[in-house]
Design a protein around this nucleic acid. Structure first.
Ligand SMILES: [Mn+2]
Ligand SMILES: [Mn+2]
Ligand SMILES: [Mn+2]
Ligand SMILES: [Mn+2]
Lengths: 152, 152
DNA sequence: CGAATAACTTAGCAATGGCTACATTGTTTC
DNA sequence: GAAACAATGTAGCCATTGCTAAGTTATTCG
């Protein structure tokens, strides 16, 4: 029997509509690429002195064309600055995003390893999980980490 | 100094190229919607007797049009069967996906709560994290869960 | 220096997944 | 049974994110 009218349901204390989780997930996905690129650009700059399109493509597992267009979006959104045929640089905003992302990423990896997950799988899973770990959950991960309680 | 040729680097034991994590993440994102819809359809069918477009839209936080097109893709991929103006049903394949997804989802929520994360945030974060939790990591979550070691 | 090569850019295709506006079909209600 | 309404479907828009093919620019090397 389709087309049955929605009955108004009586609820007690507003129990977190399920849609909220999906909305949050979509929001996180919308900035995920910015986070991964920022991290990669920061890493490459540190490791090799500059971030080039080809190296980003290699590291992210996409073609250089995909990187090119992503960089254009990141520049539009204020995360990087770039000029034609030159290397890519993070803006202040981009550096902040990179360092926050990098810290969270490494914490997630360390936490998974501390749980007994193999390093390989920890690194693979963390690449996706990291973007959905809120501040509260990150703090819980950090708190559950064995030693060096400070932050080292 | 841009346009510097890539130097061939000498490596020892093949240390998991970083691109692999990003590739895995993209693969997971490609089936994420199927997983969430399968779960939602199974839940609604159990709770209210059938899964209707409006109820799915409500639960997933999108418009009914978005649901409609998603259902078309799911049917194309063999996860659901549907006829115009009728409710939506899971295929065998869809039911399997739903039950695996539901089990993983609930385990992730329970694990986060056991870590001290508030139920609200646990539910919000789990909605995105779940799709990136591999079998190995899920087992580690389960192993770290307080009691009822079996699976209840 | 000029040719070869590597890196980068541009053009254009496709799938996904969101939307609004409008059309159609079932269900309820009078 | 017809009007009103709820639900579903269709048309068409847009942004993102992947791709291949072809063109352009910078670097390197003979
Ligand atoms: Mn990532
Ligand atoms: Mn994700
Ligand atoms: Mn779920
Ligand atoms: Mn989910």
């Amino acid at each position: 029997m389709p087309l049955k009218k929605n009955v108004r349901k009586i609820r007690s204390p507003a129990p977190l509509p399920r849609a909220e989780g999906h909305r949050q997930t979509r929001r996180e996905h919308a900035i995920e690429i910015a986070e991964d690129y920022a991290e990669a650009i920061a890493d490459l700059t540190l490791e090799t002195g500059e971030a080039r399109v080809v190296d980003l493509a290699q590291r992210l597992g996409v073609t250089h064309v995909t990187v090119n267009r992503a960089i254009a979006r990141l520049q539009r959104d204020g995360f990087v600055s770039s000029q034609p045929y030159r290397a890519i640089f993070l803006t202040e905003k981009g550096r902040h995003l990179a360092s926050a992302s990098k810290r969270r990423h490494e914490l997630v990896v360390a936490f998974l390893i501390s749980l007994g997950v193999s390093e390989r799988v920890a690194r693979l899973d963390a690449e996706g999980m990291e973007h959905h770990v809120s501040a509260e959950t990150l703090a819980a991960f950090q708190g559950a980490l064995p030693r060096k309680g400070q932050q080292g």
